[in-house]
Design a binder for these strands. Structure first.
Lengths: 351, 351
DNA sequence: TTGTAGGCGTTATCAA
DNA sequence: TTGATAACGCCTACAA
C-alpha cells in the first residue's frame, strides 16, 4: 500500500500527486476523493478527514486543467487593465477585487500598458486558461473587430472605457454630465476662454467629456473654439507641453483627467503661473492626489473603487444566471470644488 | 465533411471548437493540427496555411488545461503582490511585466492587499492553473510554513520582502546600507534626535532598515533610543498619528518608506511644522511623488522597476535551466537629497 | 456511502 | 510529411 508515495519520496524530484495517489494513501477510491474535493455531503466525516490528511501528506495540488477539461466551472475572472500606473485604474482594480472576494471569485490582473497587441495576447491567454469572465478596460485604439472572436461566448464587462463595436456590457461614469458640470462651474466663475486639455480623438471617454464641455459652452451662449481643444498624452509630462500655449490663449482648463491636470499644475508652477489665481484648472476622476497637490485640485469625482465593484457585481451576476445579455450601467459623478479653480474669484466675478 | 461545424453554427450557443474540429475543417488529422500549434517545422507550408485558416474560421481557442494535463509547459508567471495601492509596488510590477515580455512569458498579477489568507488562496489558484513560476512580494505576517507546501517544486523569487523560513530566491535592495546612508546624512546635518518611523517589528524590510539606522547612530557615537522607534501602519494616515509625538521628541525622522514619509509631511503641514526647516524628513523607495510633494522629499532611491525586472529575469533563467537553487540578488541604493531634510542647514551645522 | 467506467482536448510515440 | 492511438487527472454517471 502507498507504494506510489514511497517511490515518490525515494526520488528527488517527485511527480505531482493525483487524486489516485490520495485515494490510495487514504484507502478509498478516487471518486470518494473527488467528492471530498467538491465538498459533497455524501462523504462520511471520518472518511473526509482521512482524505484531507492524505492530501496534505502528499502535498496534493488540485489540477484545474484536468477539471475544466471535464467541464468544471472556473472561478477565475480576468481583469484586463490598460494602465496600472494611473492610480485611478488601480482604485478600480481594487474595487473589482473586493467585490470578487465576496462572490468567491478570484481575479487575475493583467496590465496592457495601453498596448493593443499585448492586450490581445493577454485576453487570449486568459481564455486559454479558462477564465470564466472578463472585466476589460480597453487599451487606447483597441480594435473591437480583433477582440470579438476572442470574447465570444464569454461574459465581458467593459469598465470605464467602451469599444463602440463590441457587444458587451459597460460600466462607466456619466462623463458627459460630469464634464458639463465642471465646465459650467468655470463659466459661473467668469471664465470665457476655457480650454479642454488632454487625450486624443479616438478615445470614447474623451469624446463624452468633450461633448459635456461643449454643451456647457453652448448653454452659456459661448462659442466652441477648436483651438482651445488641446490634444496631449495622458501623462503628467504630456500636459506640460501644452502649458505655455494655454497661458496665452485661455484663462481656465478642463482637463481630460487628474493625471493631466496635475501635470498641468506642475508645469504652471514651473512657469510662475498661479493656478487658482491667474489660471483655473479642473480635473476629472478625483484621485487621491487631487486632494494633496498644491493648490488642491478641483475635480469631477468618479469613485473608481465603486465603479470597479459594480462591474464585478454585474459580471458575477451574469455568470450566475448564464445570461450574458449586455447591460449598461452609468454611475453619477460629483464636482468637488477645491482651490485650483479659484473658487474665491466667484464673488469678484459675479459683481 | 465539416458536419460538426455546421451543427455548431445551427445551434445558438456553440461548444468550443477543438483541434478535431479544426482538423476536419482543414481536412487533416488532429496530429497535424497539433504540430501546427506547436510551430513545428515538419508541416508543409500549404498545410499550415489551411490549418490556420480553419482555426480562425472556427474561432478556435487553444485549451491550455488539456495541454498541461498532457504535460505541456506553461508560459504563465504568477505575480503575487502585497499592495498595489503603493506606487512602489506598481512600479515593481511593471518592471516584472516588461522583463517578461522580452522572455515570452505572460505575467498575471494578484493583489493580496497584505492579507495572508488571500495570499494563500491566490498562490494556490496559480498553482492549480499551472503557473510556471512565482514572483512573490509577501504580505505582512505571512507564515513561511504555510507557504512551503504550496510552492514546492516550483521556482519562486521573492521580491523586495523576504520570508526567513522560505527556501526561495530573493531580489531586494540593500536596505541596511541605504538606511545607514540616510541616517548618516541626517547626523551630518547636525541632528541628534532622529526617529525611525513606520512599520511593525515582524517585517523583514523594516528590520534591515532599522539595523542600518542603528549602525549609523553607533558609528556616530549616538545612543540608540527605543522611544524614538515609532511603529505605525504603512499608509499616509498611519504616519499622521505619530506626528504630534515626533515634533516633541525628535528633530528628524527616517521613515520606513515614502508612503509613510509623505503622510508625515502632510501631517506636519497641518500642524504648522515646517518640514525641511523645523524638522527633517527622509523617506525610502523614492517613488515618483517624492519629487513632487512640497517640500520635495529626500529619499533612498530603490528603482522598483529595475528590481522587478531583475526578479523576472532570475525567474525566467531558472525556468530555462530547470535549476531552482535559490539565489540572492541585492541591488544598491542611492540617497537622493531634496528639500525635506533641510540640506541647507548643513553649512550652519558644520560651523 | 463508496467503487467502476468512460471521456473531456491535447501531446507524444510510433507507424505509414 | 502526415495519421492513428494511448495516455494525462479529473468529473459524472451508474452500480453496488
Amino acid at each position: 500500500m502507498a507504494a506510489g508515495a514511497d517511490e515518490r519520496e525515494a526520488e528527488g524530484r517527485e511527480a505531482r500527486a493525483t487524486i489516485v495517489d490520495v485515494a490510495r494513501q487514504a484507502g478509498v477510491s478516487k471518486s470518494t476523493v473527488s467528492l471530498v474535493l467538491s465538498g459533497s455531503s455524501l462523504v462520511a466525516e471520518a472518511t473526509r478527514a482521512r482524505v484531507s490528511q492524505a492530501m496534505s501528506d502528499l502535498g496534493y495540488i488540485y489540477h484545474r486543467g484536468a477539471a475544466t477539461l471535464r467541464g468544471a466551472k472556473s472561478r477565475v475572472l480576468g481583469m484586463v487593465i490598460n494602465d496600472l500606473s494611473n492610480p485611478f485604474f488601480v482604485e478600480m482594480a481594487i474595487g473589482i477585487e473586493e467585490a470578487c472576494q465576496g462572490g468567491a471569485y478570484i481575479p487575475f490582473i493583467a496590465n496592457t500598458v495601453e498596448n493593443p497587441v499585448r492586450q490581445l495576447q493577454v485576453i487570449r491567454s486568459m481564455r486559454e486558461y479558462g477564465a470564466a469572465g472578463l472585466a476589460l478596460s480597453p487599451a487606447i485604439s483597441t480594435s473591437a473587430l480583433e477582440l470579438k472572436p476572442l470574447v465570444s461566448e464569454m461574459p465581458v464587462v467593459q469598465v470605464m472605457r467602451r469599444l463602440p463595436g463590441l457587444r458587451a456590457s459597460v460600466v462607466a461614469p456619466e462623463n458627459r454630465l460630469g464634464a458639463r458640470k465642471a465646465a459650467s462651474h468655470l463659466i459661473g466663475l467668469g471664465h470665457r476662454r476655457i480650454a479642454f486639455v488632454g487625450g486624443f480623438p479616438s478615445m470614447s471617454v474623451r469624446e463624452e467629456r468633450l461633448a459635456g464641455y461643449a454643451e456647457a459652452l453652448d448653454a452659456a451662449g459661448l462659442p466652441f473654439d477648436p483651438s482651445l481643444v488641446v490634444e496631449a498624452p495622458i501623462s503628467p509630462s504630456g500636459a506640460a507641453g501644452a502649458a505655455p500655449q494655454l497661458m496665452r490663449t485661455a484663462t481656465a482648463a478642463l482637463c481630460f483627467n487628474d493625471v493631466v491636470a496635475i501635470g498641468l499644475i506642475r508645469a504652471f508652477a514651473a512657469l510662475g503661473v498661479a493656478v487658482g489665481g491667474d489660471f483655473a484648472v479642473v480635473g476629472f476622476d478625483d484621485i487621491d492626489e487631487a486632494r494633496h497637490i498644491f493648490p488642491a485640485l478641483t475635480s469631477v469625482a468618479v469613485n473608481g473603487r465603486a465603479l470597479g465593484a459594480r462591474a464585478a457585481q454585474l459580471l458575477m451576476r451574469q455568470l450566475a444566471s448564464g445570461d450574458f445579455t449586455p447591460e449598461t450601467v452609468l454611475s453619477p459623478t460629483t464636482l468637488v470644488v477645491r482651490a485650483s479653480c479659484g473658487a474665491s474669484r466667484q464673488s469678484g466675478v459675479s459683481s
